[in-house]
Structures are given as structure tokens and as C-alpha cells.
């Protein structure tokens, strides 16, 4: 069952113009289990569960793709730069190793 995860995209700084380079921060609530830690209640090892592919795109055009492993922290945070070219929508697609797919998007509104 694909549950909707809590995620967030932040654009920094808050006020930007066309041509500026902004930070695109992506945060998602995810356990990122390594497959090494025992569950304290059941005593069984928790299976590995981590995000493995992330795609940042602007109006459908991907500008950054990532491959990620379980060595990234719980509730991961990824930050990349983006050069604003105009109004549009930033979309982040991410899948994890169990096949769960999610997307999150945010509008870019440069102030000219």
C-alpha cells in the first residue's frame, strides 16, 4: 500500500528573481531503515526500507537525478541549486526500495 508520505519543498531565499540561483530543499518523513537494527518490541530485524531514486524536475524536464542508499539519515534532507528561468512548477518524484512512489511539487514564482 502506497501511503502518502509527509514531504516538503522549500525554496531559499524566499524572494528571488528570474536568473537567480536558488536552493531547492527537499525533506521527506521516511524511516530509512538499514536492515541492521532490531525492532525493540518484536526482537526481529527490521527489513531495509529506504528511498533509492529521486528526480527533481521543472515543468516536466528533469534537472537533477539522485541515487540514494540506506546510509542517508532518517527523514532525509536533500538540497540542490536551481537557476530560475521563469514561472513554473518544481516536482520531486521519489521511489523507495519497496516500490513505493510519491511526488511532491511546488510552484516557482519569481518576482521581477
Amino acid at each position: 500500500m502506497a501511503e502518502a508520505r509527509k514531504s516538503m519543498i522549500k525554496i531559499k531565499p524566499k524572494k528571488y528573481k528570474t536568473g537567480d540561483i536558488v536552493k531547492v530543499d527537499f525533506i521527506v518523513i521516511h524511516p530509512m531503515d538499514t536492515g541492521l537494527i532490531k525492532d525493540k518490541k518484536t526482537g526481529k530485524i527490521k527489513p531495509a526500507h529506504y528511498i533509492d531514486n529521486i528526480t527533481f524536475s521543472f515543468d516536466g524536464k528533469p534537472f537533477t537525478t539522485m541515487k540514494v542508499w540506506e546510509t542517508v539519515s532518517t527523514n532525509p534532507y536533500f538540497s540542490v541549486n536551481y537557476k530560475v528561468t521563469g514561472k513554473g512548477k518544481i516536482t520531486v518524484d521519489y521511489t523507495d526500495n519497496t516500490g513505493e512512489k510519491n511526488t511532491k511539487s511546488k510552484k516557482l514564482k519569481p518576482k521581477d
Binding site: 540561483i21 537533477t64 536533500f78 538540497s79 540542490v80 537557476k83
Partner: peptide
């Protein structure tokens, strides 16, 4: 030993990446 592989394009504007690792 791998944490993240980030493929960038010229649209990024700068070679920058930040995350948190274990």
C-alpha cells in the same frame, strides 16, 4: 560506502549538494 549519487545538469546553476548521512 555509498551515500548518494547526484547527477547534475547545467540547469542547476551551481555544483552544490547537501544532505545528512549516517
Amino acid at each position: 560506502s555509498r551515500c548518494a549519487d547526484v547527477m547534475l545538469t547545467p540547469a542547476n546553476g551551481k555544483g552544490y549538494f547537501a544532505t545528512r548521512v549516517k
